[in-house]
Design a protein around this nucleic acid. Structure first.
Length: 337
DNA sequence: AAATCGTGGAG
DNA sequence: TCTCCAAGATT
């Protein structure tokens, strides 16, 4: 399949059937594109939209973001997951202001020097913000290419990824890059879906290896699933007696799970004195947490120099970035007691 | 190269 | 309930 033909089919389909009303498409300024692309990493569009709106309302410009505190940023990101993205976005704003007076580079290599911006995101910024040549390989493109060209290996391995990027660089046109990149993503998201793709409506059907061989559901090949381990976790619920009731929160360290979020103090083992108030299970990508929450009078648990601690009332809770299970748990817990 | 890093949508 | 996986980056 010739490059020209491929590009034209993607562009023509995009014009009629693609998505044109996503919040970050109007207007597609470099800052808005950066924020949306970071939020969209491993995260579905419908999940991102309300976060994007809230973010833009609070941090409308790169300058306003650079002036924000880490806690403000984390509070806006709470519930979205992969929290290093939030810290990197703050670093990115300060990086751009320091290195180029707030101006975005339009060069692929320089874009990848921005914290949190890798090869995909650099290409996306080039395409969406500058309408320039910017190859992209994300989950959508990976699936589309593996089927269209009948790529047999498992994506994620270096051989297959190298081939996917080679194809992306080769097939990406020199003009109409915004529409082309959007078309690729829209094709993957709406037609060339993981299960039961809508090949009948696909403009590339005639050239698709997977369709010809009726292997749409086999490609791309999936990597072997591994069972995730289960970890025990213990959390301290320490209340300040006076009204209004306040609970002690501890800021988690800058690395590891839930980095930089505020959380109930975590212990290695169950406290010797304490009442089990509630427990929960929470599944991450790579382990399952069984958490137990212990009510205690001991205010000295988990006290150390490097982590900030604060007593927080129910009304202030929204200002703190909390892990998802505690965002669900704490309000009712504080009202009952 | 393989692990780590979250949460929720959708079947 | 279980599984797959989403506009990936970083170490």
């Amino acid at each position: 399949m010739r490059q020209n033909q491929f590009v034209n089919q993607v562009l023509a389909w995009q014009a009629n059937h693609g998505r044109h009303d996503l919040p970050w498409q109007q207007p597609a300024t470099p800052y808005r594109v950066l924020v949306s692309e970071i939020m969209l990493q491993q995260t579905q569009v419908t999940t991102v939209i309300p976060y994007f709106e809230r973010w833009m309302s609070s941090f409308p410009t790169l300058q306003s973001l650079a002036a924000a505190t880490e806690d403000q940023v984390m509070a806006h990101w709470q519930g979205l997951g992969y929290y290093s993205r939030a810290r990197n976005l703050l670093k990115a704003a300060r990086h751009l202001i320091e290195h180029s007076a707030g101006e975005f580079p339009d060069d692929l290599k320089e874009l990848q020097e921005i914290p949190g911006v890798g090869r995909y995101t650099a290409g996306a910024i080039r395409s969406f913000a500058f309408d320039q040549y910017g190859p992209i390989v994300d989950g959508n493109v990976r699936r589309l290419f593996c089927r269209l060209f009948g790529i047999e290996g498992v994506p994620g391995t270096s051989v297959v990824d190298k081939e996917l990027w080679r194809l992306a660089e080769e097939l990406t046109p020199k003009e109409h890059n915004r529409r082309f990149a959007q078309g690729l993503l829209d094709l993957g998201a709406t037609l060339c879906t993981p299960r039961n793709p809508n090949c009948t409506s696909c403009p590339l059907q005639a050239d698709c290896v997977a369709f010809r061989e009726q292997r749409q559901n086999e490609l791309p090949h999936k990597k072997a699933t591994k069972t995730i381990p289960r970890r025990e976790a213990h959390f301290v619920l320490h209340l300040q007696a006076d009204k209004p009731v306040r609970i002690r929160l501890l800021k988690r360290p800058p690395s590891g799970i839930w980095a930089s979020l505020w959380c109930l103090p975590e212990l290695d083992e169950a406290p010797t004195q304490g009442e089990l108030v509630t427990e929960f299970t929470h599944t991450f990508s790579h382990f399952k947490m069984h958490g137990q929450v212990w009510l205690t009078q001991d205010s000295t648990l988990c006290l150390n120099e490097d982590s900030a601690t604060q007593y927080v009332a129910l009304e202030q809770l929204a200002d703190f970035g909390l892990p998802a299970p505690f965002r669900a748990l704490l309000p009712s817990l504080m009202q009952e007691i």
